[in-house]
Amino acid sequence: MAALPLALRNVTVTAASGRGLLNIPDYTLPAGQSLAILGPSGAGKSTLLHVLSGLRRVSTGSVHWGATDLATLTETRLSAFRRRHIGQIFQDFLLFDEMSALENAAVARQFAPGPERAEILRRAVQSLTSLGLDPQETRRATTYSGGERQRIAVARALAQGPDVLLADEPTASLDRTSAERLTDDLLAAAQRTGLSLICVTHDPALATRLDRTLRLAHGAPEMSHAA
């Protein structure tokens, strides 16, 4: 695992209707740094996150993670890039309800090449343990509390051994205590593994603890500064 720097160059995303969703002339994030993406609803935060993960193709410009330009990758290569380099956390956890915590955390094992599977399982066990969850627990994911479920989602993202962690409103569905615990966990994981952490959030408590802030309005950056 080697942290990847991010470089956005003249990125625009246009909806099918022709409406501009995102317009970022130039932005860079050094490897291993953390970034909070802020802004009101409809500002383009989630669109940017999807562009960074390659789930959304840019209309113009380029998105570089290290030397890799996502725009040049085929769907299959893009999938492989996500699996190897990008971990994702979603607002609604999006776990597989019928699976146990460990099955969820190690789900990437099912589509990873054979030699990588054991390592994914090892990291899933390690991540669950470090996040205070029992990997041996066999009960379904639905039986866990909201905070626990989001920690399973974090373990799932970390089990892939990513260089970058993308989180979409990771604390939005949690109460204050669980949100603080999750923030601690995310930052500890980022520090321990040296990965870059990018969070879309409305949570000021989370945003103030990250290295940088990118505030969007109408799809474009308002200002960028170090926290």
Partner: peptide, 15 residues
């Protein structure tokens, strides 16, 4: 939605 999560996590379309 679960299938979309798999894609987001890096599963190839073939998976």
């Amino acid at each position: 939605r679960n299938l979309a999560v798999l894609r987001a996590l890096g599963a190839a379309p073939r998976f």
